[in-house]
Amino acid sequence: METQTLEKIIAEHPYFAGLEPEYTSLLVGCASNVRFDAGRYLWREGEEANQFYLIREGRVAIEMMPPHRKAIVVETVGEGEILGWSWLLPPYTWRFHARAVEMTRALALDGKCLRNKCEQNHDLGYELLKRFAQIINHRLDATRMQLLDLYGKR
């Protein structure tokens, strides 16, 4: 039952749409339900990046700690979004902090396990990389737009 639910969530997620059923099952095999209370860090900068999350409920802030300045939130990731791609790219360490702003439920996917499977099966590797490249692309767009400081004084 639990596995079926996970399968459904992953199969219906826009980023995994059209994925071969065998790959979807593979993802399900690497997935587990997790929960973070408000204020809890999902990870901190520099830690090993061995998973990604599909947020089901709640909100996670990506934080930067600039030296000699207060921490700033550069982005929040919420329901339905995928959080984390550092597991896919060397050196497999997190660049920023991730903190649950409110109680957050998510599917955690084991990136280390997936990494190994991708090495063995490049078709799977390509499918995943293609999908994560899209996520990275969206984030890059959003970051560039933020850099415009749209509403600020020019």
Partner: peptide, 20 residues
């Protein structure tokens, strides 16, 4: 666009809201 750590709302550009 810029939230402090005390901000509990969303951070990101306005176009990022459409996915909700």
């Amino acid at each position: 666009d810029y939230g402090g750590v005390a901000w509990r709302g969303r951070v990101g550009v306005v176009t990022s809201l459409f996915k909700y």
